[in-house]
């Protein structure tokens, strides 16, 4: 089923392209997804089946490229080979959106493959601004940066997360990717009001939203992307809709991934909320 590969105005709800769904998507079925998001790094070095599926998919759907290894908050020099691969990949895929996270992921000689938080300080604000400028100039385009789920806060943070992110966007003119699951999980674990975050963020800079189901262990919420959407998340989503309605929204499921049809039911639910929202 061919959908416009450059516009998502007709269907703002997307799904992540994940390997358990390759067989299903190879048949090019009609789906409820309006677009797909791919993890950029997973496609740098493959010319096999994953890349062939992506190429087929991008003929039918707009694609968003989401990264997990930029490590924008690192204090080491950039991995320039990585940036070169990223730029080449963007040129090949021509995504409607590109993004990564406001985090560091380890060190050059030891990638932890995790999204690690930094302190919300003026010093880090300047450091990240400089690095975002470098990356955006090198790639020749704006990136959207995603807020994290973090399992600890720094004692010496002087700004709230939303103040830090808002200032960063203003200084660098970067876009934002608002992960509502991360906001919700953090608000529960660190006990703050998620509405404060949602209301403070410069909504016009938000170019993509992520929604996912978290999990609970020993009274703590984990950002596992392993469950359907909970009502609390949908309430938070409605609050964003009250500020701005047409932001491309991704439903993510990354652990114990169910059938594609189950993901589609989540999109249908989201679309119903969206349609009925004034």
């Amino acid at each position: 089923m061919k959908k416009s590969n450059s516009s998502i105005s007709t269907n703002i709800f997307g799904l992540g392209l994940r390997s358990p769904h390759y067989s299903y998507l190879e048949a090019r079925p009609s789906t409820t997804a309006g677009w797909f998001e791919v993890i950029s790094e997973n496609y740098f070095r493959t010319r096999g089946r994953p890349r062939r599926i992506l190429d087929a998919l991008r003929a039918d759907y707009p694609i968003s490229c989401h990264g997990v290894s930029l490590s924008i908050a690192s204090y080491e020099d950039f991995d320039w080979k990585y940036l070169e691969d990223l730029k080449k990949f963007y040129n090949e895929i021509q995504p409607f959106q590109v993004s990564d996270h406001l985090c560091f992921t380890g060190l050059k000689n030891n990638n932890l493959h995790n999204l690690l938080p930094v302190a919300f300080t003026r010093e880090n604000l300047i450091h990240l601004s400089e690095r975002i400028d470098i990356v955006q100039n090198y790639l020749g385009r704006k990136l959207a940066f995603e807020n994290l789920s973090a399992y600890f806060d720094y004692k010496h943070s002087t700004l709230s997360e939303w103040e830090f992110i808002s200032e960063l966007a203003k200084i660098t003119d970067c876009d934002l990717l608002l992960d509502l699951n991360n906001i919700f999980v953090n608000s529960y674990n660190h006990q703050f009001n998620p509405d404060e975050f949602i209301n403070a963020i410069p909504i016009d800079r938000v170019k993509e939203i992520h929604l996912a189901g978290f999990s609970e262990r020993d009274g703590f919420y984990f950002d596992t992307h392993s469950n359907p959407l909970y009502p609390e998340l949908l309430d938070l989503y409605k609050k964003v809709l009250s500020r701005k309605k047409d932001i491309p929204t991704l439903f993510e499921w990354d652990e114990d991934i169910p059938s594609f049809e189950i993901l589609e039911t989540q999109i249908i639910e989201l679309r119903t909320i969206w349609k009925n929202y004034p």
Binding site: D153, Y154, K155, N189, H190, F220
Partner: peptide, 10 residues
């Protein structure tokens, strides 16, 4: 540990 906050849940 000295640099991070003991959270209410963790």
């Amino acid at each position: 540990i000295d640099l991070i906050i003991d959270g209410p849940k963790l």
